[in-house]
Design a protein around this nucleic acid. Structure first.
Lengths: 217, 217
DNA sequence: CTTTATTTTAAACGAACGTTTGATTGAAGT
DNA sequence: ACTTCAATCAAACGTTCGTTTAAAATAAAG
């Protein structure tokens, strides 16, 4: 009957759920420690500060996901006639694998990612691009290969559009799934929501980009 | 030399800038009233509460934008062979018109919209759909007309993807424009950023949607 | 000018927050 | 058995927050 989880794990498990649901600054340490059934002071004892707890929560997923994504992209890069659709689909499995590290891990990670990007202006963007820059490079490379009509600057913008689509959708994940159920009687799990996104993102990224300078009338 | 702005306007002008930059809950009334050079208590005197101030900030833009967007959509609806690209381009002018109501109004509005959607789970989503439901209906209708291969549920999802693309891009507006300048020596104003988005969104929304149920392999 | 509303002001309120403290516990090492 | 040390705990600390109060200042009305 005893709880085999360490205090540190109980904290991080409760924290990520609440962070994903309510955002970082809207989630107090008192709420986390109540939910985790540990003492308030144990957060600062085990993690140092709230900020370091947030980083630990994000790092647990990033450290698993980014290398796995890198490997999946290398693999799909061998494919001779690769489409952008294929490249995006290759990202689903590493994302879904996060469900092994933790129940609802995929949804939690994407929600946390969205929260992190929006809440703290540019901080997470910097962290990801410096700690996992090679993976981002690889994605650019694959996009360039499968959509050679795009200039590097177009690829830059469209990767950010795609990130926006992904994290905004996932940060509203619960609400959207509930509406889809109520209005269309349609059930959606995480993987369905992800796969539903792919045609949109692939078509968007590879769309022709007309010059913006010649447009007046 | 005298300041002709009322206290109420000074508050709302300072508040929207800070809300857009830092988010609602990260912006204290003390910060707003310092920036606006008014007394702390005047917020509660003129607006009642912080929550009502947030609503007033958003309402000022929504009440101008939504009717203008509605008119623009009605107009473009007359067009016999309308494309989705045209429909999206029709939204640019109402958005840019927000620069008249306030300097940098377009960027501010889109940033505020993004903050509102993400920060308070579902509250703004409910407000917009109940107060401006006809305009959203009109958009769905136009999408259905220009992309008749999509089911209503597909349109629902893709409208939210598009909203995500738009508000995420605009909430990172400053950072993205700066990176584009540094890495590609490319200058972008708000309208350029908006128009650059359109091919992506139009291609994404009108992409074919394969069935998700048959996929198992 | 006097009286009445309206607006502005300084000050304080109570609540919630992240963090620190210092005592207490319980297992490991000798 | 005694010591050591990491872990837990209740309690408090100092800040910051949104909001309220009641007096002072200003504008409007008679």
């Amino acid at each position: 009957m005893a709880n085999r989880l360490t205090t540190k794990d109980k904290i991080i498990n409760a924290a990520e759920r609440l962070f994903a649901e309510r955002g970082f600054s809207e989630t107090s340490l008192r709420l986390i420690t109540n939910k985790a059934e540990v003492n308030l002071a144990s957060v600062n004892y085990h993690f140092g500060s709230k900020k370091e707890l947030i980083q630990a929560v994000l790092a647990r997923y990033l450290n698993q996901f980014m290398p796995a994504l890198g490997r999946a992209l290398e693999e799909v890069d061998q494919e001779p006639d690769l489409t952008l659709q294929d490249a995006f689909e290759a990202m689903v499995e590493p994302l879904m694998a996060l469900n092994d590290v933790r129940q609802h891990g995929t949804a939690l990670f994407l929600q946390l990612l969205g929260r992190g990007y929006i809440e703290n202006q540019g901080h997470l963007r910097w962290f990801v691009s410096t700690h996992h820059g090679e993976v981002l490079e690889k994605i650019s490379e694959l996009v360039h290969r499968t959509a050679p009509h795009l200039k590097p600057t177009d690829i830059f913008w469209r990767m950010h559009y795609t990130l926006g689509t992904l994290v905004f959708t996932m940060s509203s994940y619960r609400a959207l799934v509930d509406i889809a159920k109520a209005d269309f009687d349609q059930d959606n799990d995480v993987e369905t929501v992800l796969r539903r996104l792919i045609p949109y993102m692939a078509a968007g990224v590879s769309a022709p980009q007309p010059s913006l300078l010649t447009v007046t009338e």
